[in-house]
Design a protein around this nucleic acid. Structure first.
Lengths: 240, 240
DNA sequence: CGTATTGTTGAAATGCATCAACCGCGGTGG
DNA sequence: CCACCGCGGTTGATGCATTTCAACAATACG
């Protein structure tokens, strides 16, 4: 299976064959996007539900000064904006970070799938609750963690999320994020991100190289981050 | 009307008399809590939906070091944890900041009200989307705003939220938050909060005194904060 | 009325931003 | 095929916002 959306939802609530087929159908006609392209812009009227099938994207807001703050990363399997059609305009933008394959599902279709299959509805709601937990964890990071702790914490989170969709190899995974993007996400400067990454590398915890991350010492990384995975609510504890 | 929950939801989606009655019924047997009492603790199994009818509370997480980060304020009319029953454990705690009156609604009752009244379901989902928007705005504040901008931004947000439930008087409203609590919410030190509040007072923008805030110069405050209210998605534009 | 809590102020320390320069690499065009 | 350009990454020196530590004042509270 390489539909990460189905794989992810199946980790949230057990899906049967008919449910998987329904999700397969609903994501059948995805669109390709280049990197650095806005899928949704702040102020737009809300559109269909978006599902990332391949590639990464981010939610972000730009400040009057022109700097931007990334408020969430979207990786394969992630969806967004379940009920946003209820709003009159978007309060943030979404942009691809890599070339991406994304399905755009009309509200009616999603509602149909959710009402016909309880497990799909449950999985979608759980996914949303996890997303909220991730946002809360980001707030905690920004408010109370030093820069090195913040970077380490984000890497722990991303590692587990990538692992949930089966895209890790040992303690190694593809991370197509430039230091500039990391800085935008963590509320720091690119140069300071660079220094912190160096520190983590020298500490033997992890190393980023050419778009991929190697976790050299998971225990040390978790320790530096003060990481507690509870907020990701992975049923994987069973599965793993 | 003094049921702030109904008042708030009515600002999200127009409610008819029967819908208001249904909400009235569902919040009919609230419980009283003292200040500084945990309503929910991290690690607990999720319980009923909580609705604040009177008083303030906050969502928070405590760090290993013992410091805490507040990730959201709950004021009268706010509810929480619509679908949390789907999770196995809470990833954060909720604590009263003042004496409070809170209704605890079983999942079955909420689901019944939402399925029988489309407007209630819509309003609840809009409320949740607004809460998510607020979280994103907090992330932006923590990541990209200076301390004085952060404080000003939070005050703008709280002013509008309090106004939505009809509890402002002119440019003045009750804010039962100590500087310690503000510090926990904004990721700063109490002493620095204190200095920033002084600065805002001397600038003639706003002044906090004994549990209440006076907005002296709204334009200046908004300007300092770089505040854009779009993320609160208030239908009040029509109503106001 | 004393005691705990909250607010206020000062001085010193520090973590991160800022400014500035340079390097390495991939891509493009001559 | 090579020279150039531009972007992402790396490093150093300096400045400043915020923390930290410490003491004290004001207010709420039993």
């Amino acid at each position: 299976m390489d539909n990460r959306f189905i794989q992810k939802l199946n980790g949230m609530a057990l899906l049967g064959a008919t449910e998987k087929a329904a999700l397969e159908e609903v994501t059948a006609n995805p669109t390709r996007f280049a990197a650095r392209q806005d899928l949704i812009r702040e102020g737009d009227p809300p559109g269909p539900v978006l599902v990332m099938l391949e590639g990464w994207a981010c939610r972000y807001k730009v400040m009057p000064s022109g700097t931007r703050q990334i408020v969430a990363f979207l990786m394969p399997g992630d969806s967004c904006d379940l009920h946003t059609k209820l709003l009159t305009e978007m309060d943030h933008s979404i942009q691809t970070l890599t070339p991406a394959l994304v399905a755009r599902i009309p509200r009616s279709q999603i509602e149909k799938a959710m009402s016909e299959h309880r497990a799909i509805a449950d999985a979608m709601y759980i996914a949303q609750l996890v997303d909220e937990g991730i946002m809360r964890a980001w707030i905690v990071s920004m408010g109370r963690r030093s820069s090195i702790e913040r970077v380490a914490h984000l890497m722990c989170e991303l590692y587990l999320r990538v692992r949930n969709i089966g895209l890790t190899h040992d303690h190694h995974f593809a991370l197509p994020l430039s230091q500039q993007v990391l800085a935008d996400a963590l509320g720091m400067t690119p140069v300071h991100i660079n220094r912190v990454l160096k520190e983590l590398r020298l500490a033997g915890a992890m190393a980023i190289k050419r778009g991929s991350v190697a976790i050299m010492d998971p225990v040390k990384l978790v320790q530096i981050a003060g990481f507690d995975e509870n907020y990701l609510h992975r049923r994987l504890r069973k599965a793993a």
